[in-house]
């Protein structure tokens, strides 16, 4: 045992303060309700114990259907108010700010891998600067995991085959535990890591000393060329049989079955590993699956590269 008895977790993110306020609000309400119920039960139990001299007889007017309707409606509006209060304070936190630093997380049994835009990679660790919103784009290589940092009051499941997102903006330098919170097999309890929050200057110095041959998009470009993606996607002329990828990210595309789809990270991921799933209209479905040729970290790099391509530039770089 070390460090005595912790009572309350550290708050290291602006939203953790909001969450704690909500928690304490609800805790106060709960304690009030429990005290009300318990004191009524105790008072009645003592006062109306069998044979006590307390008055019974005619029941007062207040013991009526109207009284019951009254407290039903009161409870309903109380809960409605709490819902409104809780929900309104979370609405702003749905989406990460546009200027957020984008960090990729790949979970696998039983390890966390993180990729910074600068190309720096970490295992079971994530370095982040204070004061900068950090958007986590996460996927799993096998089963469902959950990225949980109690100090940020932040948790998000990490799923295979799709990207899930969450974000934080740390405000207190320090090292905070990272847990896997979704049961993922034998070593679930060992799937631990740490989030190291540094002042921006320290973060810059830390980044500078990391081995980084290439930034993430650059690593993706290398993959793009080595996998030969360009032989179809960069071909021009009348017989090109694959869509050009420049500026595609964020666009709506028509699929061959008539659906429309938004090109986001999950769409690009599926297009590479399950190309038949969302075949784009106007092109033959000739692309093979690259699921075996590229792992999740490679996919992150490749998608970062695709996102970096300007419109009409093809894949040539």
């Amino acid at each position: 045992m070390r460090g005595g008895l912790p009572i309350f977790p550290v708050e290291a993110d602006a939203r953790s303060v909001v969450t704690d306020h909500l928690f304490f609000g609800l805790l106060g309400l709960s304690v009030a309700i429990i005290l009300l119920v318990v004191s009524l039960v105790v008072v009645f139990s003592v006062r109306y114990r069998r044979g006590s001299s307390a008055k019974r007889g005619e029941l007062p007017e207040i013991v009526s259907k109207e009284f019951e309707i009254g407290w039903t409606v009161a409870t309903f509006f109380l809960f409605l108010f709490v819902f409104w209060w809780v929900s309104s304070s979370q609405l702003s936190g749905f989406k990460a700010p546009a200027n957020a630093l984008e960090i990729h997380v790949v979970a696998k049994q039983w390890m966390w891998k993180t990729q910074h835009p600068s190309g720096v990679r970490e295992i079971n660790a994530l370095h982040a600067p204070t004061g900068v919103p950090v958007r986590l784009v996460m996927t799993s290589q096998d089963v469902i995991h959950s990225f949980y940092v109690p100090a940020f009051r932040m948790k998000q499941d990490v799923l295979p085959g799709r990207y899930t997102e969450t974000w934080f903006k740390a405000n207190r330098p320090g090292t905070y535990p990272l847990y896997c919170a979704e049961y993922c097999g034998t070593d679930h309890s060992q799937m631990l890591g740490e989030v190291v929050v540094m002042r921006p200057a320290d973060y810059g110095r830390w980044t500078a000393v990391q081995p980084q041959p290439n930034d993430l998009a650059g690593q993706g470009g290398v993959l793009y060329r080595s996998l030969g993606c360009g032989s179809c996607h960069d071909a021009a002329g009348p017989n090109h049989n694959a869509p050009s990828l420049g500026g595609l990210y964020g666009q709506q595309v028509m699929l061959s079955d008539g659906r429309r789809a938004l090109v986001d990270e999950t769409f690009l991921h599926q297009a590479i590993v399950q190309p038949d799933r969302n075949a784009v209209a106007g092109y033959p479905a000739t692309m093979p699956s690259y699921a075996k040729a590229i792992d999740e970290e490679g996919l992150n790099a490749l998608i970062a590269y695709l996102k970096s391509l300007p419109a009409h530039a093809g894949g040539r770089s």
Binding site: T19, L22, F23, Q90, G93, R153, K155, A181
Partner: peptide, 10 residues
């Protein structure tokens, strides 16, 4: 309450 659940679920 969603924000509290995000912290304490699981």
């Amino acid at each position: 309450s969603v924000p509290i659940d995000v912290h304490v679920t699981d």
